[in-house]
């Protein structure tokens, strides 16, 4: 398969969730600090090690839509920016 985003294809390259291009599969490596935030993410099954598929990234600092366990979930941009992921 031709890689449309060669820069993101280096092994275990870490990036913020909102800079992962739509269509990529990523693994969460780090969550932002703060119990309230990570608690809400954990409630939807998102935590370190969780695999996500990035569906879309809305422009103008809009939310990031990821698929987890087959379900789309919207994550506000400010939060998505603080979630570190690696491409799979």
């Amino acid at each position: 398969m031709i890689n449309k985003y060669p820069l993101t294809n280096t092994i275990s390259s870490k990036l913020a969730l909102d800079s992962a291009p739509p269509g990529t599969r990523v693994r969460v490596t780090e969550l932002p600090p703060g119990r309230h935030r990570s608690g809400r993410l954990a409630n939807l099954g998102i935590g370190p090690g969780t695999e996500l598929e990035v569906l879309s990234v809305y422009p103008f600092r809009g939310p990031v839509i990821v698929r987890i366990d087959g379900n789309p979930v919207a994550i506000g941009r400010g939060l998505a920016r603080k979630i570190t992921v690696e491409t799979i």
Binding site: R40, L44, G76, R77, G78, L79
Partner: peptide
């Protein structure tokens, strides 16, 4: 406040 949302679709 800058409370970022997370919700299911």
């Amino acid at each position: 406040e800058d409370d970022e949302p997370v919700y299911e679709l």
